[in-house]
Design a binder for these strands. Structure first.
Lengths: 343, 343
DNA sequence: CAACGATGCTACATCGATTGAGCATGCATG
DNA sequence: CATGCATGCTCAATCGATGTAGCATCGTTG
């Protein structure tokens, strides 16, 4: 970044304002932070100083202010990505809800990179965050450990950890119901049912494991067993999905369980390359997206209940739990009626 | 937020570490911030202090550190929303690019609320941001004015202002080409062309005005004039679009220019309610979304070149321009071939 | 008119990290 | 053995805002 011009006016401080107003820095400080009535500053002086502050473009130096205050009211969050509906909604709602509670939200995006996750967490703690929401972290426990050592509360969101309270979706039930829906639609539309493909996620990932468990349970329920070579877990990103599918061939009348909208981007790309018609495939996707919901092959999406998850998060922020609870939030199955797409 | 436990260990400071290590705070400081070689601290002491710092879960207090340093290296950004592709990508790329340049990005989401935009800007300046990227602001000049008074550089992104350099898409050309594409597809698929509908955005909004100009130009080029009651600009949000369309009826073989993917959500909802088939409508949308690109009615999307816009932004950050330039970045017309959707 | 309380302010230590100046020691050199 | 210089550290001022303690002034009351 360019050096600031040597000649340009520096940011005014309370000392500058005090000099202009012919008063003391303490008076200016209390006037500008709203404690002036308590400190018996006259309304006349308060008005004059406020006016001068506005004229000079004064903005408090939070570094100095927070250094002195005992509490920062800063609440930090790390998220893996912004550019999909789920995490975008989490980030946006988090900011709104934090502000509504008089807290200062600071969010950092960590690209699913464990080292960046850790560095970002350390950075937020350096900003004196009082609490850190660790969202979708690949290694939440490393961060939880550091937070504990630094005396900062951590809360895991989306992916659970073992050394801090966790709030996650009920991935098992969500996946089981979605799987059952896809299977029932295959029966209705194709008149036959075969085991589904499971595509996306990581085998070591708690959410993926739970969803796979739900996936298996739904198959078992109708006496079907899943096929190991139809379980593909190359990560979440579209290009990883494409690469993993490259060697596979999909029969007509197949069904797919897609483990996130991010993965779905890759799957759709691949389906188009494979020249599969919309009529001969059925799929469902964990996570919701308004446009993905309109894909002709799509029979349902599992929407994670972001408002409920964040509501619970802020409850834990306000009243720290005893012990390392894990709270599961039910998902919302968004069944897609063919009426909306065939016409 | 819950009070921090009175008994719990406070965050360790360099004074605590100095005491444990039996050395001075200055030594600890220089060891932990990497200037210890310059200050001729022995490697032995450096190692011991680093180890103790790690054991104690030390994290520098950025409030104290930044207060003393002359530069913060913080670069702020405000964005209206996270939960759509365009702004999600801007936020994500901004963080990546800022970090790559050794800067600390801090982003705040402002919900298209002018007051929140202003408050967020003031907050970022209070964090000692050296530069503020004002993205898609409804009132960028109010913020630009405050930044000027506070001696902080501002750069407008997406929507231009008059008192700071601005980087915007070439909305005119982008909209003209998209309009021409929609019209040509109507000709090809329907064998007839009628003036398009223009849906979404705000009449006072620079981008909307420019896009409307491009929209008109494309019509004029083929000797068509637009119909005033087919220009609907109720804002960007889906529910505003739905409300504005509620009284309208769309003839078969109509064409729509949709002014953002956010608006498109509402338009699609409305089309489904109107029970319009995918075959009798053609639309194009300004902004790109991977799933919206698969809608059967969709013939093309205008992708704003986010990497180029941010690249230019960081060029301006590094070498401040003389005067208030306005830089226009060409858009990418993503033509959608029917092959991808009919099968 | 002394004592007292209310009013309206100022002085100063403090938060934690940074950094220029300076001090003590050890070693080599003339 | 005095001098110079490199080495390895410490001291103390500083950044800007906060808040407690305290000071001066004024009006009121006994």
């Amino acid at each position: 970044m360019a050096e600031s011009d040597g000649n340009s006016a520096k940011r005014p401080t309370i000392y500058d304002l005090a000099e202009i107003a012919g008063t003391s820095p303490s008076a200016v400080s209390s006037i500008l932070n709203g404690t002036w009535k308590k400190r018996r500053i006259s309304e006349k002086l308060a008005e004059r100083v406020s006016r001068i502050a506005a004229e000079q473009g004064y903005a408090v130096n939070l570094q100095a202010s927070l250094l002195r205050r005992e509490r920062s009211r800063i609440i930090g969050m790390i998220v893996p990505k912004y550019d999909n509906r789920y995490f975008g909604a989490i980030a946006e709602q988090f900011e709104i809800m934090a502000r509504a509670r008089g807290l200062f939200p600071v969010i950092t995006c960590t690209q699913r990179d464990p080292d960046l996750e850790f560095e970002a967490a350390r950075e937020l703690i350096s900003y004196q965050a009082e609490c850190l929401i660790v969202t979708g972290a690949t290694d939440p426990d490393r961060i939880g450990e550091f937070c504990a050592a630094a005396g900062v509360r951590a809360i895991n969101l989306d992916l659970p950890g073992s050394n801090a309270p966790s709030i996650v979706s009920d991935n098992f039930t969500g996946a089981r119901d979605l799987t059952a829906l896809i299977l029932s639609r295959m029966e209705r539309d194709f008149g036959e049912i075969r085991p589904l493909w499971f595509i996306g996620g990581r085998s070591k990932d708690h959410n993926t494991a739970e969803r796979l468990r739900g996936f298996r349970a739904a198959h078992r329920q109708i006496g079907l067993s899943v096929l190991p070579d139809q379980i593909i877990m190359p990560g979440y990103s579209p290009h990883k999905a494409i690469a993993a599918m490259a060697t596979k061939t999909l029969a007509d009348r197949s069904g797919l369980f897609v483990n996130s909208t991010i993965t779905l981007e890759g799957v759709i790309h691949w389906l188009n390359e494979q020249r599969h018609g919309s009529g001969d495939i059925r799929l469902g996707c964990f996570d919701w997206d308004p446009f993905a919901a309109l894909l002709p092959q799509n029979v349902g999406m599992t929407e994670q209940n972001v408002p409920a998850m964040l509501e619970t998060t802020f409850e834990l922020v306000e009243t720290p739990p005893t012990g390392n609870v894990r709270i599961e939030i039910p998902c919302i199955l968004r069944e897609i009626s063919p009426a909306a797409i065939t016409r």
